[in-house]
Write a protein that binds this DNA or RNA. Structure first.
Length: 189
DNA sequence: TGCCTGATGTTCT
DNA sequence: GAACATCAGGCAC
């Protein structure tokens, strides 16, 4: 078991969503490095009507029921990809949607893929996928390995985390399962 | 500044 | 056949 699985495997989706704030993603494309910090997340699990895992394990959601520390990528609205980190015990369908990240390194490379700059670069779940070249070929990727690694950082202080209902969905919209780092320009409204 | 809508494909009913 | 964990562009105010 990897360290990543130890940290995420025993957490509920809600705990993991908070724990992942402040952690980093390291993306390597053609030998070039992009590094970003996670600043906004949403929790989803199989008891939750808004979750893809709610209706049970299917071909599409298979990865979410696998071990923690893997990447679940889905395609939505005909043109966008979104990235989730699988959490919880193997066999339990839970994940954390990465809604926004803050560029730390390789910003120029991300601008090339996005054709945008500034906070528009990565302030939404589909935007950050475009900036980091994450598509469905990365579905089921082990996040301890190149070319995309999740790096656990020290937990950030509770007082810097804001909790709100989720956005952009139509089911279970009142659940306060969205988390973000306060006063960060990359957090979506 | 803020609402409205089109683009567009995969999955499930 | 409809829904969908979205985004960006256009137009009205």
């Amino acid at each position: 078991m990897t360290n990543l699985q130890r940290v995420l495997g025993k957490s509920s989706a809600i705990e993991a969503a908070q724990r992942l704030l402040g952690c980093e993603l390291l993306r390597i494309i053609d030998g070039r490095v992009a590094r970003v910090r996670i600043v906004e997340t949403e929790a989803y699990d199989q008891t939750d009507a808004a979750s893809h895992s709610y209706r049970g394990r299917t071909l599409r959601t298979d990865v979410m029921f696998g071990p923690a520390g893997y990447l679940y990528v889905y395609f939505t609205y005909g043109m966008h990809y979104c990235a989730n980190v699988v959490v919880g015990e193997t066999g339990y369908g839970a994940g954390v949607l990465i809604r926004a990240v803050e560029p730390l390194e390789g910003e120029v490379m991300m601008e090339e893929y996005r054709h945008k700059s500034g906070s528009e670069l990565t302030n939404g779940p589909a935007k950050l996928c475009q900036a980091l070249m994450i598509d469905k070929t990365m579905n089921g990727h082990d996040l301890t390995l190149e070319p995309l690694q999740l790096i656990i950082r020290p937990e950030i202080d509770d007082s810097r985390i804001a909790v709100t209902p989720r956005i952009g969905i139509s089911q279970a919209i009142d659940e306060p399962w969205r988390f973000y780092i306060k006063d960060n320009q990359y957090v979506s409204r």
